[in-house]
Amino acid sequence: MDNIKDTVLEVVKSILPITIVITVLQFTLIWLPMETFLQFLIGVLFVGVGLILFLLGVNIGLLPVGEMIGAALPKTKKLWVIIFFGFLLGLVVTFAEPDVRVLSTQVEQVSAGAIPKSILILSVALGVGIFVALAMVRIIFNINIVYLLTVGYGLIFLLAAFTPQAYVPISFDSGGVTTGPLTVPFIMALGVGVASVMKGKSASSDGFGLIALASIGPILSVLLLGVIYG
C-alpha cells in the first residue's frame, strides 16, 4: 500500500504543475474552445492513471527482473552469454519503448515516407543493443567510461560531417527517446545486477553509465542510416 501511495503522489506532483499552467493560460490568454479544454482535462486524467499503473509495473516487475537477470548472467561464467544477452535485451526493450515509436511515426509523416518507420525503429534498437553489449564489456573489463564516451562522441561528430543535414537532428532526438520510461529502469537494473555479483565491482560505480552509452548507439546508427540513404 505504501508503494501505491508513494506512486500516486509522485504522479500527481509530476502532472499537476503543467495542468495548472495550461488552466491559467486557458482563462487568461489562449481561450481554447471549451470542448478542446475538456479534452485536455480528460487526457490529463488518462495520463495520470496510465503513469500510476506504469510506474507500479516498473517497480513490481521490470526493476526486480532486470536485476535478477543481471545477477544471473555472470554466474554462467561465459563472456559471450553476458554480452549477447546484453545486446538482445537492449534490442527488444527498445522495440517496446513508446517514445521511440512516437518519434519514428512523426519522422515518417514529416519525411513523407522517405524515412520508413520500421527502418528507423530497427536502427535505433540495433544501436541501443550494441552499446548495451559494450556496456557489459566495460563492466567486465573495468574500462573507464570516459574513454568510451570520448570515442563515441568523436565518431558522432565525424559521421555528422558526412551525413545529410536532415538526419543529424533526427539522430540526436533518437538518442534522447531511448532514455525513456521503459528502457532506463530495465537497462539500469540490468547493469546494477551484473556489477553487484561480480568480484571487485561496485554496483554504484560500475553499474551506472549504461544509459549514457546506450544513448550514443542510436545517434551513430541513425547517422549511418543517413549516410546510406543519403
Rank of each mutant, 00 (worst) to 15 (best):
V128S: 03
Q165Y: 14
Q26W: 15
P33T: 04
S204G: 05
I4L: 15
G200R: 07
D173V: 11
G152H: 03
G175H: 06
T163I: 08
G50P: 02
T28V: 13
L103Y: 08
P218E: 04
V102I: 14
G193N: 08
I52N: 00
V100H: 01
F95A: 08
T179L: 13
L91G: 10
T94I: 10
I216T: 05
G61D: 04
G226N: 10
K117F: 15
L103K: 01
M34P: 08
N142C: 07
V24C: 10
S215P: 04
V65L: 13
I115S: 10
L149P: 03
V146R: 02
A189S: 12
K201E: 12
T105G: 05
L91E: 15
V58M: 10
L53V: 07
Y229R: 00
N144F: 06
A214C: 06
A161W: 13
G193Y: 14
L158N: 00
R138H: 10
T19Q: 08
L38A: 14
V100C: 04
P33A: 07
V44T: 09
V151K: 03
P33M: 09
I187V: 15
G180F: 12
V227P: 02
I140N: 00
F157P: 03
P169D: 07
E10D: 08
N59V: 01
M1I: 03
G217C: 06
L103F: 12
V65F: 14
I18H: 05
I145G: 06
K78I: 13
G154R: 01
G90W: 06
I140D: 00
G70Q: 02
K117G: 09
G86E: 09
S171K: 05
A71H: 08
V65N: 01
G90I: 05
G191Q: 11
L63I: 14
L223P: 03
F141T: 00
I219M: 12
E97S: 11
L51S: 05
V227E: 05
L225A: 08
A135P: 01
E10S: 12
L120I: 13
A112G: 07
W31I: 10
I82Q: 03
S196R: 01
E108Y: 13
I119M: 11
F54C: 08
L89F: 15
A112R: 01
S221C: 11
T36P: 07
L220G: 02
S14L: 15
L158D: 02
P64L: 15
G48L: 04
G113H: 09
L56G: 13
G50K: 00
R138L: 12
I42S: 03
V124S: 10
I156V: 11
I143D: 01
V47I: 13
L32Q: 09
D99A: 15
N59Y: 14
P181K: 04
L51P: 02
E35Q: 07
S221Y: 11
T94V: 12
V93S: 00
L103N: 04
Y229P: 00
F85E: 07
G48I: 06
A160C: 10
I22W: 11
A72Y: 15
L25T: 04
I143V: 14
I69D: 03
V65P: 01
A161T: 10
I228V: 13
A212C: 09
S205T: 13
F172D: 05
M198K: 02
A125V: 07
T19E: 10
L220A: 06
I219T: 10
A112D: 08
P74R: 06
L9Y: 08
S221K: 07
L190G: 05
S205I: 15
